[in-house]
Design a protein around this nucleic acid. Structure first.
Length: 270
DNA sequence: CAGGTCTCCTGCTAGC
DNA sequence: TGCTAGCAGGAGACCT
């Protein structure tokens, strides 16, 4: 499942292949993927736009075009494949961007991914980008900010770490890793964390995500950044999907917190 | 505003 | 062996 490091990997992979390429046509085979504008408008506007740059904001991929930003959220299983025109279009390839010499196909088994095509000048001031919190490396992200954001949150910190309006990019896997490294119990209420715990969360978020980016993300089930590219961070996971605590060797606890599978060590995380 | 629950969707798997 | 119910989960909608 793509979280920030996976999206970063996809971005870098696509940049190598797509920069300065002009989109000649688009085919949308499953229209709910296109959230805004209408599919018809989406297709008309995107034609003849050139990919100037590819950026990332949180878990969103941002294709910078001449006049627009094409935003793409991969959600659970979204992937981009470079294909030849005569390659068979499979049932999960929902949006096909046609270039001069190849096609870029958006593949999404579960159809959860979403795209927006937004006017370039307003793109960062409207949904969904304007609702995002700080990047983990943003200098504004400090314990004062988190204290302010968490002070009315009585939910378990595990749930709150997934809230993209506070810190972007942390998904279910990395939330478990961050809390383990921070020695914080995932059930602890967000509003009960002290300054040193908040600092620890910020520090370890950076540690975990930086390492994951370096290793190309995590391949647990079906994630590949593009065909044949696999992340290696799954080899570095300390608790998520694991049985035994790497520190004290107790058996790890697996529970559900607000519907999300959560792994932690009862002994090390207080 | 906070937070609980439901929904989207399909592939996989536990269990019979 | 073959079937099916249930699970996985990011994020938004809807309700209390």
């Amino acid at each position: 499942m793509p979280e920030l490091p996976e999206v970063e990997t996809v971005k870098e992979t696509l940049k190598k292949q797509l920069l300065n390429q002009k989109i000649l046509d688009v085919v949308v085979n499953y229209s709910p993927i296109v959230e805004k504008p209408s599919v018809e408008e989406f297709i008309n506007k995107i034609k003849n736009q050139t990919i100037i740059d590819i950026k990332r904001r949180g878990k969103w991929l941002l294709f910078e075009l001449n006049d627009y930003y094409l935003l793409s959220h991969l959600r659970m299983e979204g992937k981009y494949y470079i294909k030849n025109f005569n390659d068979e279009v499979t049932r999960h390839q929902h949006v096909i961007f046609k270039f001069k010499d190849f096609e870029l196909r958006y593949n999404d088994t579960r159809k959860f991914g979403r795209m927006y095509l937004l006017d370039k000048k307003n793109a960062f001031n409207e949904k969904p980008l304007n609702e995002l919190g700080y990047e983990p490396w943003d200098s504004n992200l400090n314990s004062d900010y988190l204290y302010h954001k968490y002070k009315n949150k009585k939910l378990p910190i595990k749930s709150v770490l997934l809230d993209q309006s506070i810190i972007v990019g942390i998904g279910n896997i990395y939330a478990d890793e961050v809390l383990y490294l921070s020695k914080i119990n995932p059930y602890k209420k967000a509003n009960e964390l002290n300054t040193s715990e908040l600092d620890s969360i910020i520090k370890n978020t950076k540690v975990v995500l930086e390492k994951a980016i370096l290793l190309g993300g995590t391949t647990i089930k079906s994630y590949t950044s593009s065909e044949g590219v696999h992340g290696r961070f799954q080899n570095e996971l300390l608790v998520h999907t694991k049985e035994e605590c790497p520190n004290c060797h107790s058996k790890l606890i697996k529970v559900k917190i607000n519907g999300r599978g959560t792994y932690y060590c009862e002994n090390c995380q207080k």
